[in-house]
Simulated scan of single mutants.
Amino acid sequence: MTDRQDPALHVLTAERRQLTSLAYRLTGSLADAEDVVQETYARWYAMPRPRRDGIASPGAWLTTVASRICLDLLGSARARRERYVGQWLPEPVPGGTAWISGRWRGGVADPADPADPAERVTLDESVSMAFLVVLDAMTPAERVAFVLHDVFGYPFADVARVVGRTPAACRQLASSARRRVRPARERPVTPAARHAEVVRAFRRAWEAGDIGALVGLLAPDATATGDGGGLVTAAPRPVEGAERVARFFAERAGAVSGVTMLERVVNGQPGLVARKDGATVAVLAFAIADDRVRHIWAVLNPEKLRPWAAD
């Protein structure tokens, strides 16, 4: 299909990255996000040509439809999670900081964004594993209202059309979601360089099987969560406490031969990638505060490691 056949084609193509970025934050899965975008475009081209030509802002239409598909998907995802083997974690993505800049309203960039900065979440922050884990604890309506308004800057009138509630109700949904996020956001932000140093020190202590060094790098209430999806071995429940987490990792330091630990950007923050025979077997994301590791999220489910097939 060419621009002559569909004048909106260049707009649709430009929106794909934006839609994938939005859908990933709403679903926590890059695979689901890609399916959402594909379904959104399928619905666009399923409309009669005169109806498509009558849509003033294709970008706004696409965002609304994609958000509604995500809302439906989040409802069914809860049932799927009940059947999931072990702990479920969001799908990690390489990098993340380059995903979309600027604010968007009705499909048009809005750099001014007059909304209260206290209610805003940066796009880089919104793709971190820690943030996605908090989002996953929200109700579908809370998550959609919060991401659309606080992350992407859509006014509540537009959010209401997606969620099917009043603007006032959507404001309450976002406020409730904001209360869930607040504890994590109130912790001091660790600069990326220092974050990387702590992760590097953790890698070295882990490879050496040094329990004492690992304990020194972990917060007293540190937790480690693994997601194997029933396809590979992972701890069925989170490991809690610095001593237990340290021993858990130290005991596995020499358990798997031929594994190389690489320092990589995971969801916009320094993390670790485990490679064996050229294949990625695990991706680890870290939450760090006061120079100590508070949380470790290890994704081992091979179905979630598809984006990590090559560096």
Rank of each mutant, 00 (worst) to 15 (best):
G102K: 07
G102S: 06
G106Q: 04
V108T: 15
D110A: 09
P111M: 04
P111I: 05
D113H: 05
D113R: 06
D113V: 09
D116I: 06
A118T: 10
S126D: 02
A130T: 02
A130M: 08
V133W: 10
L135W: 00
L135V: 05
D136P: 04
T139Y: 01
A141I: 00
R143Q: 11
R143C: 02
F146A: 08
H149I: 00
D150C: 14
V151F: 04
P155E: 05
P155R: 10
P155W: 03
F156K: 03
D158V: 00
V163L: 15
G164D: 05
G164E: 07
R165S: 08
A168M: 11
A168D: 15
Q172C: 08
L173C: 09
L173E: 04
S176W: 02
S176V: 03
R179S: 11
R180P: 00
P183M: 04
P183I: 12
E186N: 08
P191S: 08
R194A: 04
E197V: 15
E197T: 10
E197D: 12
E197Q: 14
V199W: 10
V199R: 08
F202N: 12
R203P: 07
R203K: 15
A205G: 07
A205M: 13
A205E: 11
D210A: 04
D210I: 14
G212E: 14
G212Y: 11
G212H: 13
V215M: 11
L217T: 02
L218R: 08
P220C: 10
A222C: 10
A224Q: 05
G226Q: 13
G229W: 00
L231D: 03
V232S: 08
A234F: 02
R237D: 14
P238F: 05
V239C: 00
E240M: 05
G241A: 03
